[in-house]
Design a protein around this nucleic acid. Structure first.
Lengths: 107, 107
DNA sequence: ACGATAAGCAACTATTTGGTTGCATGATAT
DNA sequence: ATATCATGCAACCAAATAGTTGCTTATCGT
């Protein structure tokens, strides 16, 4: 697997904020996601494109609206992998965490 | 806490590679970390400085050598927080993981 | 003392990135 | 049909980034 797009997508505070907003309320349109942000719609659209490329956000068209949905799987995978790599020796809880992740519906 | 330096530091593949190398063998010098990399020593030093700023790497002087050590704590914290935020509803193992992190020697 | 080795510092460059403005497309409602 | 609203696309710009080269400082071994 190629981690890089996910790490890259998570590196920007604006993009993490967008994930926060989607986490708060899933299925928002581009316009909704722009509200209250000090950014143009086009800037937000670019951030969303990066999040989409990292498979962190997916979308569905509804008429002329584009509804955005968060996908927590890549975050979970990276977290599990990196905890595993750097913390595993001292974390007994990890195996349970791993099992939970692997037993889920994301391959 | 300010996540941003950690996310930013992890965003670069070269820096993740440096963490991999330190994970493989801890306490390496700058020169050792450079070996086999398609990068100048100065470039590696800059990456290490960014990792240090994110508290992901610390170092100790040994004569004229600078020994680098990995610090897994920030990775664990971020992983725990982000799993918590985006995956917690489906992860029972997280609370144990959190406890383990909080009970450790890192303040 | 002196050459060799390890690292530090600073200036410079090319590329990437986050953001913009302007215009085009497509769906909705009257 | 046509005005309006939501989004798409492309060019452009300024700032940040990854990398370089060149030079300096400090320690080790002889």
């Amino acid at each position: 697997m190629d981690d890089d797009p996910v790490f890259h997508a998570l590196a920007d505070a604006s993009r993490r904020q967008l994930l926060d907003r989607l986490h708060d309320r899933n299925g928002q349109t581009l316009g909704e996601l722009c509200q209250g942000l000090e950014m143009t719609r086009q800037a937000v659209a670019k951030h969303l494109a990066i999040l989409e490329a990292a498979n962190l956000v997916s979308w569905r068209r509804h008429g002329r609206e584009k509804l955005h949905f968060i996908n927590p799987v890549p975050i979970g995978e990276i977290a599990a992998r990196w905890i595993g790599k750097f913390d595993q020796p001292r974390l007994g809880a990890l195996s349970a965490l791993r099992k939970t992740l692997e037993g889920d519906d994301h391959g």
